[in-house]
Design a protein around this nucleic acid. Sequence first.
DNA 1: CCACGGGCTGAACGGTCATTCAAACTGCAC
DNA 2: GTGCAGTTTGAATGACCGTTCAGCCCGTGG
Lengths: 243, 243
Amino acid sequence: MAGRRRLSEARRIQILDAAAQVIGRRGLCETRISDIASVAGTSSALVLYYFESKDRLLAEALTYADEQFYEETTAGLSEVKSARERLARLVDLSCPYDRPGDGRLDTWLLWLELWNRSPRDAAVASSRRTLDRQWREEIAEIVRDGQAAGEFGAVDADDFALRFASLMDGLAVLVVLGDPDVSRARMLSVCLREAGRELGFDPADVAGILMDPTALTRRASRDATPGPSSAAPGPRRAARPAR
Amino acid sequence: MAGRRRLSEARRIQILDAAAQVIGRRGLCETRISDIASVAGTSSALVLYYFESKDRLLAEALTYADEQFYEETTAGLSEVKSARERLARLVDLSCPYDRPGDGRLDTWLLWLELWNRSPRDAAVASSRRTLDRQWREEIAEIVRDGQAAGEFGAVDADDFALRFASLMDGLAVLVVLGDPDVSRARMLSVCLREAGRELGFDPADVAGILMDPTALTRRASRDATPGPSSAAPGPRRAARPAR
DNA sequence: CCACGGGCTGAACGGTCATTCAAACTGCAC
DNA sequence: GTGCAGTTTGAATGACCGTTCAGCCCGTGG
């Protein structure tokens, strides 16, 4: 029975993953149960067997993917000790890659869909609110830690968190949508500069922690064409470790 | 024939208005041609007579509503002479009301839908990019004007415009979605404070131009419950002046 | 070995639209 | 008044897709 239950849980997650993937690729409106089923490698009927209806499935998939992202991010951050570096890391993880086929980009697309569904779905709205608050709280916490350790200057942590999170959201939208004026590198640069200015540190000091350290020196690269984007085969999404 | 053409144009606009209204209320996915038709006071067949397909209609409606907003806003701004007040006005107009039934809120909801459609519709993507760039250019222009007039300090106008526009976008999403932590008044306050800090003026100086001047003094009101929201009858959308 | 029950499926059902069409209507031009 | 071009509609069409269902598969417990 335990084996059954574990199997059952695995199927649910498998379907949720497939749903997130399809939604990211086709958009919420254009997502069909049969698409999700075929990506998950099963039948439409089974998808409905695990989720009452398409509506519930989509709602769950939306919040699932973003809770996923939040958990992974905060887990990754907890290992970094310096507040400055933790903040830099948070920014780095928040910046979507501007070339397609990236998991982070998919997560952002889902987040946009979630915004749209939010006004008409109380459950989604509630999840969104929780996630957003946790996210801002995460930022505020880093700021307070840094202030206690003398790494940051004096600002209202909650106020900064709201402004900084909003700035990142607004910029991320532009990056995700492939706006030629805002590359990922530029977003990174803008965010770190802003944080440094408000909290009183030199952005160059935290460049080491970034995935792409050249972002800070390379100013606002205008060439946004990402090249032929060698459509990598293989699974788009990394295998999930079992719970 | 001129009469016919004018009539035809009027119908198109009537349908686009209806479409925008329905999309705002029900969301893009849940919008049916028959809904649009009944709001416009005609038949589904006629809607298809003016627009090739549902897809085209929705895409046009999305960009139509936002181009509309942009034009009205910039027209309204051109009357204000002081750069500080012009910026304050721009902020004021950008802040959605957090109670439902407001046209500005609908416009924001459409803007969110537009973001979602953008990655999969080249025409929409192109319109979005143009509108966004115009918007940022509008901000940058105000900054440059203000600098020339000695109203603002020295900052990179384009850089400021990007950061400021992104901040407003991020905050507006929270207000539109009814996040209890971010009321319209708080958004207004945050934006004006930020602008004043970067451009070197006292936000209190421009409070006079705001629709809701108490926003600046009333700090971050936590009570976000908008009350029983007396569902106002009457037309949701102001009558449009004939072109 | 047998039966039970959860997991799974293919096929069928039914409703909901987008889209088409033939016909009616309107007002303008001649 | 006649005809024409543009406008409007109600009804018909047909595809698509969510959902249901009757039954099969298979591991497990007795």
